[in-house]
Nucleic acid binder design. Structure first.
Lengths: 183, 183
DNA sequence: GTCCACATGTAACTGGTTACATGATTGG
DNA sequence: CCAATCATGTAACCAGTTACATGTGGAC
C-alpha cells in the first residue's frame, strides 16, 4: 500500500501530470519506489475518486490532453497519517542469493559471469548516487528537508556499497573454488 | 518467476511435503525468499503438472494426507538452466525511505519511534544470522557447498549490518533536527 | 466422542507487469 | 499530409496476500 503515498509525496513536492510523474519516478523517488506509467495512471484515478487529489481546473478531461493533479487537504492528511504509522520492514527477497543457494546443489556454471555483471551494475548505481550527493547536498545546504532527503540518499549509498563489497568478496571466493560441474 | 526455483532448490536438498517446505521457508531459504503455505501448495501443483517434480509413490492423494515430493531430472535441468541465466537485480523498494521522503514535506511526527523499532528488528535479525554463522560454518567446514551457502549468509549479515549502521545514523540525525510540525 | 494439531487445499483480492490502443500536437 | 512525440489510457495476466474450508489421526 505504498504506491499511492509515493504519488502523494511527489505531488505535494510539485503538482504534475501522469507523464511528468512517470519521468520523476525514473529518478529521485523511483530510486527507492519504482513505478510504470500504467501503475501511475491507475493510481491517479483511484486517488482522485477517493478525493485525495484533484485535476487542476481549466483542463478538459480528454484523451491525449495533459491533465495535472494537485493534492487536496485530505490527501495531505492521509500522507501524514501513513508516514507516522508503524510498518514492518519487508523481508529480504533476492534472486541472486537464491541462485547461489541453488548453485550449491546444481553447480556454479554460468553464475560467475552474472556476478561480475551485477558488480558492474551496482558500481554504476553507486557512482550515480555519489554524483547526486555531490551535486544536491553540498555542506551549506542543511535545512531540515535537505537533511532528510540526504539521509535517504545515504541509505542508497550504504546499500550499494554493501552490495559491491559483497560481490567482490563472492568473486574472490569463486576464484578459489574448484570448477565444479555436477551435471 | 523465482518461487518455483526456490521450491526446486529446497526439494533437491531434501524431498519434502508441502507443510515441511513451509516450515523450511520460515528459516533458511525463507531468509532471502519467503513464501506462505498457500503459495507453496499452488506452486507444487504447477510443478507437478509440468513434470518437474512428482509425489513420492505409496501415498494416496487424499486431503489431510501427507504428500511428499521429489525433483525429477527435468526439474533439476530447469533449475540449472535458471541458475545460469543472466538476471537483472531488482530495483530497491523500501517503504521506510519513502516515509522519510514524505516526512520532509508533511513533518516527522511519529516516524522516529518506528526508526528505533526498525533498528531493534534489524539488530535482532543480524544477531540471528551471526548465531547461524557460528553454528553452521565453523572454519573446518569448507567444502564448495558450504562456501556457497556461507557466502549467501554473509550477504544477509552485510545487509543487516548496513541497515543497523544507517538507522543509528538516522536517529542521531533526528536528535539534531528541530522538532518540526508543519501540520 | 471431542478437541487439537497436522495437513492440504480454495476463493477472493491486490499490486505489479506486459502488451496494446487511442488521441493531440508539432516539425518537416 | 505524414511521422514522431507527447500524453492518457485499457486489458490480460501473474505473483503475493488474506481469509476461509476440509479432512486425518492421536491424546484425553
Amino acid at each position: 500500500m505504498s504506491l499511492p503515498h509515493a504519488i502523494l509525496t511527489a505531488l505535494v513536492e510539485k503538482p504534475s501530470s501522469g507523464l511528468e510523474l512517470t519521468r520523476r519516478f525514473d529518478k529521485s523517488i523511483g530510486y527507492f519506489w519504482s513505478a510504470t506509467h500504467q501503475q501511475i495512471y491507475r493510481e491517479l484515478g483511484r486517488l482522485e475518486a477517493q478525493g485525495l487529489i484533484r485535476a487542476l481546473p481549466a483542463q478538459q478531461p480528454a484523451r491525449g490532453q495533459k491533465k495535472s493533479y494537485e493534492v487536496l487537504p485530505a490527501g495531505r492528511d492521509e500522507l501524514a497519517r501513513w508516514t507516522a504509522a508503524a510498518q514492518d520492514p519487508r523481508p529480504l527477497r533476492d534472486a541472486m542469493l537464491l541462485r547461489l543457494r541453488a548453485a550449491a546443489v546444481v553447480g556454479t556454471t554460468g553464475i560467475e559471469a552474472d556476478l561480475r555483471r551485477h558488480l558492474e551494475l551496482h558500481e554504476r548505481q553507486l557512482s550515480e548516487y555519489e554524483e547526486i550527493e555531490k551535486r544536491d547536498f553540498p555542506p551549506e545546504k542543511d535545512g531540515p528537508e535537505d537533511r532528510l532527503r540526504h539521509l535517504v540518499l545515504r541509505a542508497g549509498i550504504d546499500l550499494e556499497t554493501s552490495w559491491t563489497r559483497w560481490l567482490r568478496h563472492a568473486l574472490a571466493e569463486f576464484a578459489e573454488l574448484p570448477g565444479d560441474d555436477p551435471s
